[in-house]
Design a protein around this nucleic acid. Structure first.
Length: 578
RNA sequence: GGACCAUUGGUGUAGCGGCCUAACAUGCUUCCCUGUCACGGAAGAGACCACGAGUUCGAAUCUCGUAUGGUCCGCCA
């Protein structure tokens, strides 16, 4: 069989053409002495027809077959198929390989659960939707290459076997045979290498970088994933952002036909938190957070004594249809984010209703109505906390919950923005004064905030930026510290001892003593970009062979115990479970 | 480490104390059908209702435990 065409490419213009096709039997419709076969290959599906099915060998679904035939125009086209105007009249058909009945139906509309599909991922991949997802993913990577090549960037591969530095995510470790008892770590990101490339004068580096993090999984998080990684010297933050906007505009235009308005909006971290209760806000819908601390402090409610922050969100037109059970759901969502309680008030017939109103006098109620700009049938949800972070994240989660519940987000719409001006640090232990890096410890503090490093580290903002798309953190980056002493100081603030810094990062920051250029970069999560562009909310839909939530591969069953021989060579002893 | 939800023929679901000798759809097998494209029609096979204890006269159904899976919190510098 000499394939002449791909099935999905045949059109009316091919009428009369003698073709040889191969592919999988997607479906058969047998009308007695007339047989239709949907033949699928990676380009699509074309209908085959035979008026003498008895002369053909036995054909079942998912058989691999080859056919010779003639393209014929159909009298009644099938509008659901790209090849719907034509069909191929079979003159010869050969079974190339048989198939057992598949454990689930191979079609986009397959209703099989992920649990059923993953052990047969190779069958799942035959579903056109999954194939298209992988095509989209490949297209993003192709544009990434083209775009950065056109800007003079060069691709450099960085090591997979690295020094372990368990700050941040947990490392995947790889035992060394040559050095018994010693371990490499798989890269969580190429961070240090790309910075050293800058010191090495490469100036413009990029990579499609596989990264590994041994942390628990989520619908949008896999233990191994791919970053579109980039680092550049002598560019300002604005230059880096606008460089990347060019890339984003291209992938959105070429893949989903969406014109991204440039430059993208830039939202300050604290504004995002205050208004949307998130550092990765989806701004396609409202339900914004409103600060009502001043007003509520005047209430007689004793529970507000320790509350530093009291904020509310208004859900329009939901008051009358909100039940006690609905409110309980909201309270439960708030609890996940450490909110002790969330209270509901209903604005009905120009009256604010709810048991909480007993703590409010008329003046306060009037102020609330004005501040929240209430309309009839509005539902008000509010909470209080002594922590700015808790109140924002808590109400932010409730905001997201209502957006999903009320289906406020239109499919196929996009929302891109930068969140900038992140704080350098997050105070994790107030008593001991221990800070954690909000982005990572190589992030450069803003010049105008440097003087606060010694006195008020929590107020220091950084040259850090995240690209937020539809409420997902699709990428992020920073300008980096390129000065030895500043980097040392940051490590100390993060609670590392001199010895720690020297041992873990000495080899790295020593490079800054030899003329390190100002530099910065960014990394996009390829998986998340692909996920957003194909309109999925599950990262498994855009990876060929994903792991399940237990971080195992349901098909190969990895990870598994290994033979004692293998362990002996590595000088490893596995602890017996007690 | 924690919370919640789910587990019923190959697949996806319904049934939620007795009408269950478990229903529906689809897939599979056999037969009929020359214009289907989610083809249609007829017949048939296929399930110890995840596992283990318990409650009850009686359990797919209620309770507890275990396992598996999913979603989330923690975690992801």
């Amino acid at each position: 069989m000499n394939r002449t065409d791909f099935n999905g490419n045949l059109r009316a213009a091919d009428e009369g053409k003698h073709v040889e096709l191969v592919g999988w039997v997607a479906n058969r419709r047998n009308l007695g002495s007339l047989l239709f076969i949907d033949l699928r290959d990676y380009s699509g599906i074309v209908q085959l027809v035979s008026s003498s099915p008895d002369s053909l060998p036995e054909i079942k679904n998912e058989y691999v077959i080859g056919v010779k035939g003639i393209v014929r125009k159909k009298e009644v086209p099938n509008k659901n198929l790209a090849t719907g105007e034509i069909e191929v009249e079979i003159t010869e058909l050969r079974v190339i390989n048989k198939s057992m009945p598949t454990p689930f139906i191979i079609a986009d509309k397959s209703d099989a659960l992920e649990e059923t599909r993953l052990p047969y991922r190779y069958l799942d991949l035959r579903r056109p939707v999954l194939l298209n997802n992988l095509k989209t993913r490949a297209k993003i990577v192709k544009i990434w290459h083209e775009y950065l090549d056109s800007k003079g960037f060069i691709e450099v591969e960085t090591p997979i076997l690295n020094l372990s530095s368990p700050e941040g995510a947990r490392d995947y470790l790889v035992p060394s045979r040559v050095h018994p008892g010693s371990f490499y770590a798989l890269p969580q990101s190429p961070q240090l290498w790309k910075q050293l490339l800058m010191v090495g004068g490469i100036e413009r580096y990029y990579q499609v970088a596989k990264c590994f993090r041994d942390e628990d999984l989520r619908a949008d998080r896999q233990p191994e994933f791919t970053q579109l990684d980039l680092e550049v010297s002598f560019m300002s933050q604005d230059e880096i952002l606008s460089l990347q906007e060019g890339f984003l505009a291209r992938i959105f235009k070429e893949i989903v036909g969406y014109d991204v308005q440039l430059p993208l909006r830039r939202m300050k971290y604290w504004d995002a938190m205050d208004i949307y209760g998130s550092d990765k806000p989806d701004t396609r819908y409202g339900l914004t957070l409103v600060d009502i601390t001043e007003i509520m402090k005047k209430s007689t409610f004793e529970g507000f004594a320790e509350a530093k922050y009291i904020k509310a969100i208004v859900v329009p037109n939901m008051a009358s249809q909100t039940s006690r059970k609905n409110v309980d759901e909201v309270v439960a969502e708030g609890k996940k984010f450490k909110l002790k309680g969330v209270t509901a008030l209903k604005y009905l017939n120009n009256t604010l209703e709810g048991s909480f109103t007993k703590f409010l006098n008329e003046e306060i109620i009037a102020e609330l109505i004005k501040k929240l700009n209430l309309s009839d049938n509005d539902l008000v949800l509010f909470s209080s906390s002594s922590s700015r972070r808790d109140i924002d994240f808590g109400l932010g989660a409730i905001r997201t919950m209502y957006a999903k519940k009320l289906e406020l987000i239109k499919k196929g719409t996009y929302d891109l923005l930068w969140v900038i001006d992140f704080p350098m640090f997050d105070l994790v232990d107030e008593e001991k004064g221990i800070y954690a890096a909000e982005h990572h410890p190589f992030t450069r503090p803003r010049d105008e905030d440097l003087h606060l490093l010694d006195t008020n580290p929590e107020e220091v903002l950084a040259y850090a930026y995240d690209i937020i798309i539809n409420g997902y953190e699709a990428g992020g980056g920073t300008l980096r510290i390129y000065d030895h002493d500043t980097q040392w100081k940051i490590f100390k603030l993060l609670g590392l001892s001199d010895e720690d810094v020297e041992r873990k990062f000495g080899w790295f920051i020593n490079a800054f003593n030899y003329g390190a250029p100002p530099h910065g970069g960014i990394a996009f999560g390829l998986d998340r970009l692909a996920m957003i562009l194909v309109g999925s909310d599950n990262i498994k839909d855009v990876e060929a062979f994903p792991k399940n939530l237990q971080a195992s591969d349901p098909m190969s069953k990895a990870p598994t115990p290994v033979d004692q021989d293998q362990l002996d060579v590595l000088n490893i002893q596995v602890k017996q479970e007690s």
